[in-house]
Design a protein around this nucleic acid. Structure first.
Length: 466
RNA sequence: GGCCCGUUCGUCUAUCGGUUAGGACACCUGGUUUUCAACCAGGUAAGAGGGGUUCGACUCCCCUACGGGCUGCCA
């Protein structure tokens, strides 16, 4: 009998949603959603010094943009501190933990002394086996009574079987002297209480898993399935940092990458399923598994990200695409669309979405639908509007007056005009582009004419040839 | 310092002892073309280094190098 899958994403709210965190969340989400399971969200805010509500909001916003929805309420780890303390005391009662009265100064001194000797030693609390009768009336922490011999084995779905010598692990603190829980305790208690079956997280937690597994053992709880995934690196192979540019998910939104493309790219970054490259989110849910996750850190490749996004842009449904474009404009702090821009853009999406990879690029190519008279040609397109070309445009307008406004009717008119002037179609298309869009990279001239309509087309041609 | 993880084309990866080491992005060449994007045909390009095990290693083991992580009353 298989338990239903429950995964979780558990970021600490100390900043925006990191791109690596976004991918971790995505993996958890795909794994759960692909199996009819639950995907939970927990904010690890036990460190009151560094946790901020703004960061929590930013993380939620980032996840929402990525299209990752979570089940139930967002859990605040800090809110569960009483339960963590309860478990710590249960461990005390079971004898799997003990009170330690060593002060931070004593511990620091111990470490300094070891360092001075040029060695490194784990702190061994003198209180581990002390008689309770000798306990002072002083603040204390609750430490795990970790086994000092033997080994702890992590059966990791990504990293394989990892063996850690127990002698390398100290008696970690579970409950601080102020009564608040440490991460190492809280994460286990919460995962257990929330029914998490699969812990998919960054491999910076691989070593921690051994200590956490001791807590599971101490409480007699079932150990979840572990899957420690490699971190994402920058293009230079070093750990991803601000130096590399975009590290926050929100920055990718502001750069204009569509969320579907972002999901696809991130899914393929460190995970593969045969030759599958471009796929929908639904397909990803069906294919995604732990065995396809690679063991080496992956580097971010913006070229491939763009390519992937280009495919998704072309596949996008118009109404949804328009919504996403408007959200992008807000995120990028660009002016919103006017009513008429919105209407024309919507009508023209069909001919721009398959030639753009990002929203800025799409908007640039949709300039013909966004601009208004008089159209200001940019430097490149202005070159096409020489006096000869302007004359040709002028001769064209009367013939457009009477044409029926379809591509089939327009095509012979334009090709005839080109032929009559002894020029190739390209020589006619260039000034047309300049007149209609003020740009040299645009959709087909026919598509632009059809989208903006006869009157606007003629008016723009007259403006340009005047 | 100790412990743990990793290393296939420039990049993401496939391969799970026997392949001309495959695909995708990027790049180069040619084609198509109405600019851009796309598309079609083709091309360059990889098992970190060294030892083993084996009839046979990218694949299994060991060492080295390099990269990363952990080693907190941070998460």
């Amino acid at each position: 009998m298989n338990k239903p899958v429950v995964t979780r994403f558990a970021p600490s709210p100390t900043g925006y949603l990191h791109i690596g965190g976004g991918r971790t969340a995505l993996f958890n989400w795909l794994y759960a959603r692909g199996r009819g399971g639950k995907f939970l969200l927990r904010i690890e805010d036990t460190d009151r010094e560094r946790s901020t509500p703004e960061a929590t909001a930013a993380i939620l916003k980032g996840l929402t943009w990525l299209g990752l929805d979570w089940d139930g309420e967002v859990v605040s780890q800090f809110d569960r501190k009483d339960r963590h303390a309860e478990v710590a005391h249960q461990m005390l009662a079971r004898g799997t933990a003990y009170k330690c009265f060593s002060t931070q100064e004593e511990i620091a001194a111990f470490r300094a002394e070891a360092e001075a000797r040029g060695s490194y030693a784990l702190f061994q609390s003198p209180w581990r086996d002390a008689d309770p009768a000798t306990h002072p009336d002083a603040p204390y922490v609750i430490r795990m009574r970790a086994p000092r011999e033997g080994e702890t084995i992590i059966e990791d779905q990504v990293q394989g079987r990892v063996v850690i010598q127990n002698s390398a692990l100290d008696d970690m603190i579970c409950l601080r002297s102020d009564g608040t829980p440490t991460y190492m305790l809280a994460v286990v208690v919460d995962d257990h209480d929330m029914g998490v079956t699969h812990v998919i997280r960054g491999d910076d937690h691989l070593n921690n898993a051994a200590r956490q597994q001791m807590v599971y053992a101490a409480m007699g709880w079932d150990i979840p399935v572990w899957a420690h995934i490699p971190l994402i690196h920058g293009p230079d192979g070093k750990k991803l940092s601000k130096r590399h540019g975009a590290t926050g998910v929100e920055e990718y939104q502001a750069m204009g990458y569509p969320a579907a493309g972002m999901r696809n790219y991130l899914t393929r970054l460190g995970w593969a399923h045969g030759d599958a490259e471009i796929f929908s989110t639904e397909e990803a849910m069906k294919m995604f598994d732990l065995s396809g996750i690679g063991r080496a850190p992956a580097r971010l490749d913006f070229k491939k990200l763009e390519n992937t996004c280009g495919h998704h842009m072309a596949m996008a449904e118009n109404a949804a695409l328009l919504h996403e474009i408007e959200a992008y404009l807000v995120a990028a702090k660009r002016p919103a669309l006017t009513q008429s821009q919105r209407a024309l853009l919507q009508a023209g999406l069909y001919c721009v979405k398959d030639r753009a990879k990002t929203f800025p690029e799409l908007l640039e190519k949709a300039q013909f639908a966004l601009t208004s008279r008089p159209v200001q040609p940019d430097e490149a397109s202005a070159k096409a509007l020489d006096s000869v070309s302007r004359g040709i445009l002028k001769s064209l307008t009367p013939r457009l007056q009477t044409a029926s406004w379809t591509k089939d009717a327009l095509e012979p008119i334009l090709t005839d005009v080109a032929a009559e002037n002894g020029i190739g179609f390209g020589k006619l298309a260039a000034p047309l582009r300049a007149a209609l869009a003020g740009r040299s990279a645009t959709p087909s001239v026919y598509d632009m004419m059809l989208v903006i309509g006869r009157d606007e087309t003629i008016a723009r041609l007259e403006d340009a040839s005047a």
